[in-house]
Nucleic acid binder design. Structure first.
Lengths: 225, 225
DNA sequence: TGGAGGAATTAAAAAATCTCAACCCGTAAT
DNA sequence: ATTACGGGTTGAGATTTTTTAATTCCTCCA
């Protein structure tokens, strides 16, 4: 249950639906934000940057389709998952929905079980493309197995260490500011001291036995062999 | 892991065909749902979530190809089996059909016997990847018999234990998050405590007597010899 | 040469997470 | 009715990871 809570925004004008979905998603460990009309949805989407947005097609102020179009027009929401919810089993809406760039489409009445499995499926699909094996020279980082290999030798890193290394290795050579690292690995709401990063960096260097992380004084760190 | 009746949705505008197929599939133990045009097919597919969908290419309202495209665009139907039915033995249609993501393609007139064997074959193919005997080094897991063998010694696991081990062994080395394990083994609607997984893992380790499950702290577990 | 600022090193405290044993509750078998 | 068993829960250690805090090291520059 500790998979860095994913944020889900639900927008629907029917309080009942809002409640049911919120309840179920919360139970699954998602962090849930709700909105009761199109404008509120837009506003909260911008402020909270959710991982998934569930939009009722029929809403006051702005319809789900409109909200979706507006969001997709913004770079920040190009990748965000969007699911449409609709009472009408209307073909026209469905087509328009998928064309607007929704990732899935669920029609009411909603079965919580089915709905949850769809949400999970979406995230699973997302993860797939997200967790790829990195190979930089003789260093291999496999996020699926959580192991690092240095010249055929397996190295075991702890969670934070692994995530930190993975982040740096995603863009070898690029310098990551301490702040970036904090946001990506720890989350932008966690507060930890600056030395914490140093210590982790040190452990990684130590365990890998290879000098692959370079310090850029006053700036941050980068992965480099 | 129960063998619940497979649901099959048949969509065709010719009542005769519908009848024949329904009769034959029912006899084979499938649960059959029928639709007489594209729209009805879409609607019933969503409501009943069938395991297999048989689509006539030429149908009122929407053609089979259109229905297929719409379905495949939805996450919930990414994995669903789809068979196209067509009167014309038209090359163009066939190609378009398979490109749209159909799993098989049968042309009329239909021989019930041949048709059934194709359907069975599809499910068998699906099953293969689903319930096959796993052998990892000297550990053998047979999901059909619910038997584990470790160096010729049979080990008896309880249901949950078995399913958990099987899940992990399906992708040796890959780390499964606690959430994934919960979803796969317990189902995404059941709520059980976190320690439950631990305890089951422990029982497995204990019974197998071999150290084959590795914990990745803060992340999950993986099968590894 | 002697700070000053930033980073590296350490050790040790604090927090998070597992393991393990004991226990409880249904249900199927006897 | 009794027992055996699967399987879910709990809480107390044990372990590991993460963070903090104190100290030492550099490197640049006045």
């Amino acid at each position: 249950m500790e998979t860095k809570a994913r944020k889900v925004l639900i927008a629907d004008d029917e309080p009942d639906i809002l409640e049911i979905l919120k309840y179920n998603l919360s139970n699954e460990g998602y962090e849930v934000i709700t909105a009761k009309d199109g404008d509120e949805a837009l506003e909260k989407a911008r402020r909270t940057q959710p991982d998934l947005i569930i939009l009722d097609v029929m809403m006051p102020k702005k319809t789900g389709v409109e909200v979706c179009q507006l969001l997709r027009a913004q770079a920040a929401f190009k990748e965000t998952l969007i699911i449409f919810l609709t009472a009408v089993n209307d073909e026209g809406t469905q087509i328009k929905g998928l064309e607007t760039g929704a990732d899935d489409y669920v029609s009411k009445p909603i079965s919580p079980k089915v709905f949850l499995s769809r949400v999970n499926a979406l995230f699973r699909r997302l993860n797939k493309t997200d967790a790829r094996i990195l190979t930089i020279d003789h260093v291999t980082i496999d996020p699926e197995r959580y192991i690092i290999k240095v010249r055929e030798n397996e190295v075991v890193l702890a969670k934070k260490e692994f995530e930190l290394l993975y982040l740096l290795a995603l863009k070898p050579g690029r310098v990551f500011l301490r702040n970036e690292i904090l946001n990506q690995v720890w989350g932008n709401d966690v507060i930890v001291g600056d030395r914490t990063i140093d210590v982790h960096i040190r452990k990684i260097r130590q365990k890998l036995g290879v000098d692959c992380i370079t310090t850029v004084k006053g700036v941050g760190y980068k992965f480099e062999l």
